[in-house]
């Protein structure tokens, strides 16, 4: 049995919980119930050479870095950074959270998800910005918890990264 702890990080209401539900249970719901504290889920991912159990820690979104409980991330081997593509400010929030975590526990593999890609007309992130981030060698995905687009790809990529 191989298990890895993964943390979902990102601003308030960016869709962390929705992404986990889509990935683990393949369902989506419009209703928004904010996460309090932490919610834990598990999903086994089958890779070509092995199977890994991802233990997904879905943390409460915080736009205010001050109240972020960094201790929940202890022992994690990977991060899913989630940005709401319809709110530019959530990108900064996700990056700050990552910096905070790296300062505490050192660098670790992560994937960066621009979520809600189905909301095309409200989309505010320019393609150039995404290209920039990819240039840094980051794994960036445009996902939608609603349609399921690229959700599995992103988690699979992270699973490969953390088992290397």
């Amino acid at each position: 049995m191989l298990q890895k702890k993964i943390c979902m990080l990102g601003g308030f209401s960016v869709g962390k919980t929705s992404l986990v539900r889509r990935f683990v249970q393949s369902i989506f719901s419009e209703t928004y119930l904010t996460t309090v504290g932490v919610k834990i889920d598990k999903k086994s991912v089958v890779l070509p050479d092995k199977t890994v159990d991802l233990i997904l820690w879905d943390l409460a979104g915080e736009d205010d870095i001050g109240s972020f409980r960094v201790s929940y991330v202890r022992g994690a081997t990977g991060l899913v950074l989630v940005v709401d593509g319809t709110r530019a400010a959530t990108l900064a929030a996700a990056l700050t959270l990552r910096e905070r975590v790296e300062a505490e526990f050192g660098a670790m593999p992560f994937v960066l998800l621009f979520n809600k890609s189905d909301l095309v007309d409200k989309w505010v992130i320019p393609d150039s910005e995404i290209d920039d981030l990819r240039q840094r060698g980051w794994q960036v995905y445009l996902t939608s918890a609603l349609t399921g687009e690229h959700v599995d790809d992103a988690f699979l990529q992270l699973a490969t990264m953390v088992t290397k």
């Binding site: 504290g37 834990i40 889920d41 598990k42 159990d53 233990i55 820690w57 929940y72 202890r74």
Partner: peptide
């Protein structure tokens, strides 16, 4: 239930109480 999940939840509760 799934012991892996229970294990993680227990440690989250511990973290929470500690914090």
């Amino acid at each position: 239930e799934d012991p892996q999940l229970i294990s993680s939840m227990l440690s989250a509760i511990q973290d929470f109480v500690k914090d």
